[in-house]
């Protein structure tokens, strides 16, 4: 049975001037899933977030959220979307009470207690302006507002920006627990990939102009492998072989990234008459896999 998609981007193509960002990009996010969008700087993450929020019109193609084109979202659909702007940007000229009072008028199911449960944990004075808070405190205010809004879909743009490790962990644990308990759908980006590992169900990795991976994160990490070995020479060219997704080497120490298995890689080397030693499969974190897939540069 076809899953119920909350987000559908169909043949999305966008350029900045003459520079192609991506062409015919297709993204689907099923209801209740947490999807992490990864990519290097300039790969198109922010472009995608802006299109999803209706702040950017793609050159062609369209994104649908709950079946509505994101360029013309109705107020009812906007009400179902919680949006965290990169850097936890909020109305910094307000204090925590003013901002709660402001937002509460827009959302009929506003959960005041959810907000103040989080805010009460902050060591702030009641009338302290958000502009005078630390980045972690601001993140908690932004998170509290989203929890009070109780949206069905959360779009979190680089949620880890500026947060120290403790707050990042708190944010991730809170978000995962909340999303899974309440059946929320989450679309997020982050520069810190180790954060994603604890949080996401599905992964979408973008490189310049294309999508490299879109799958459940478990599928990706179990299929994508790194093998290391040493060769006698340091000028062996292996990148062109279809089995190789990426090959990096430092002198004669080679890192071979592939969706193949150990036997296939060894057969490749042997078929080319390449002598190797110290061949082994390296355990990889999601971050290792991301770098292996996209390259270090």
């Amino acid at each position: 049975m076809e899953p119920n998609y909350v987000i559908q981007c169909i043949n999305l193509t966008h350029y900045y001037g003459k520079k192609l960002v991506y062409e015919n990009l297709n993204i689907n996010v099923a209801e209740g899933r947490i999807l992490g969008l990864l990519g290097k700087n300039g790969a198109g993450k922010s472009t995608t977030i802006n299109i999803l929020n209706g702040f950017l019109e793609p050159r062609s193609g369209q994104c649908l959220i709950y079946g509505e084109n994101t360029q013309h979202l109705s107020p009812a659909t906007k009400r179902r979307i919680g949006y965290l702007i990169e850097g936890h940007v909020q109305y910094a000229f307000m204090n925590v009470h003013q901002i709660e009072k402001f937002y509460s008028g827009f959302y009929p199911n506003w959960k005041r207690d959810a907000y103040f449960n989080l805010i009460d944990k902050l060591k702030i004075t009641p009338h302290q302006k958000i502009s005078t808070m630390s980045c972690g405190q601001r993140a908690q205010v932004a998170l509290g507002l989203i929890l009070a809004q109780d949206p069905d879909l959360l779009i979190l743009d680089d949620f880890s920006l500026g947060l120290d490790p403790g707050y990042r962990r708190l944010f991730i644990d809170y978000m995962r627990e909340y999303a899974k308990a309440e059946g929320k759908t989450v679309f997020l980006t982050s520069h810190i990939i180790q954060d994603m590992e604890r949080l996401i169900d599905d992964i979408l990795i973008m490189d310049y102009n294309r999508v490299l991976v879109q799958s459940p994160v478990q599928d990706f990490t179990s299929r994508f492998k790194e093998f290391t070995f040493e060769l006698d020479r340091d000028d062996v060219e292996l990148k062109e072989h279809p089995l190789a997704v990426n090959v990096e080497h430092l002198r004669n120490h080679y890192e071979f990234y592939t969706y193949g298995n150990e036997t296939e890689v060894k057969q490749l080397l042997e078929s080319q008459g390449i002598a190797y030693r110290n061949f082994k499969e390296e355990p990889m974190t999601l971050e290792d896999a991301f770098i292996g897939l996209t390259g270090k540069y």
Binding site: F55, K78, Y91
Partner: peptide, 18 residues
């Protein structure tokens, strides 16, 4: 000025109104 700082106008435009 507060709306254009950090492109905060996005917050307003995300509110459930036209």
């Amino acid at each position: 000025a507060p709306e254009i700082t950090d492109k905060r106008i996005k917050l307003a435009l995300h509110l459930p109104l036209h």
